[in-house]
């Protein structure tokens, strides 16, 4: 029973990373209408920048998290303005943006490889909360608890931002129709910039935390998060961060339990079968709007 509970918590923490990344990915898709293949690189770069803040500058981990999050956001902003804004102004559509994002994915991945000298790096264990906490008979990692808490805070915060604030209303309006929103008095350009930054920062946060939790800061970090984060968005629903959070956690728990009690070889098969089932049976996901379709 203890093993079951510990693994459930391991899955929850792992899934929280998928969800945190997925929230940023989903924001870009639902608001900007871009299926951004380069999104994983924001997480990789945030982790790399965070690592160098700790390793080279000798600054504490919380500062590394802050700088990494800012780096993820700024990178997303730069990619949006360089890659997607020209396409947006020409009404190039989703396919053009997807192809462009693939090009940026390759470029940013290659640059990340050079930044890490093609190696997998790791935050020094003493630099972040890497100890264990006893909760009854269970042993739980401090960082795992932090990751779980961070997801809860981010999910509630971003949900409230989107649903309860003027900025959120503007984001939803731009997501439905950019021109109509502009005619209604929304500064669409500013909303796009803020959304891109927020999405990059959220995924950057997932990247820094994942880099510390897995002892893997490398150009491959974002790729793993990308696939699972995408699955979380599809299963949870593109336009609701609560769905992404719940779906991400479920994916993490399912992954861990399938590996523990069934077979590691079947683990990813289960995950992607679930994705396929949702795409076929409930394409809007757990919480997605019934009529949500990106043009």
């Amino acid at each position: 029973m203890i093993l079951f509970l510990e693994q459930a918590l391991n899955g929850w923490a792992l899934g929280s990373l998928y969800a945190l990344f997925g929230i940023g990915f989903g924001l870009v898709f639902s608001t900007l209408g871009i299926l951004n293949a380069a999104h994983g690189t924001y997480a990789s770069w945030a982790a790399i920048v965070g690592y160098y803040v700790v390793e080279r500058a000798g600054l504490p981990f919380p500062v590394a998290v802050g700088v990494g999050v800012a780096a993820g956001g700024l990178l997303a902003l730069a990619v949006d303005q360089i890659a997607f804004q020209p396409l947006r102004s020409r009404k190039a559509g989703m396919l053009g943006a997807l192809i462009t994002s693939i090009a940026f994915w390759i470029i940013l991945d290659s640059l990340a490889g050079f930044a890490t000298e093609q190696q997998s790096l790791a935050f020094p264990a003493a630099s972040f909360p890497s100890g264990m906490i006893d909760i009854g008979p269970m042993k739980v990692g401090q960082l795992q608890l932090i990751i779980i808490a961070v997801l809860i805070v981010c999910t509630i915060g971003i949900h409230l931002l989107i649903q309860k604030t003027r900025l959120g209303t503007a984001m939803r309006a731009v997501g439905w129709n950019e021109v109509a929103a502009a005619l209604g008095g929304v500064n669409a350009r500013m909303v796009i910039l803020l959304t891109a930054f927020l999405a990059g920062a959220t995924s950057g946060l997932a990247g820094v935390l994942a880099g510390a939790a897995t002892s893997n800061v490398s150009f491959t970090l974002g790729e793993g998060l990308m696939l699972k984060g995408f699955a979380a968005v599809v299963v949870g629903g593109y336009d609701d961060v609560r769905g992404t959070a719940i779906a991400g956690i479920l994916l993490g728990i399912i992954e861990v339990f399938v590996a523990q009690y069934v077979s590691t070889a079947l683990r990813d098969g289960f995950t992607y079968s679930l994705l396929l089932i949702f795409l076929v049976a409930r394409p809007r996901g757990l919480f997605g709007s019934a009529g949500f379709v990106r043009a």
Partner: peptide, 20 residues
């Protein structure tokens, strides 16, 4: 026997499994 995949990066759960 705890199986993992080459692309895996999070080993918290496999480590828990082995220690169990």
């Amino acid at each position: 026997v705890v199986s993992i995949l080459s692309a895996d990066t999070d080993f918290t759960a496999p480590a828990t499994q082995a220690m169990g």
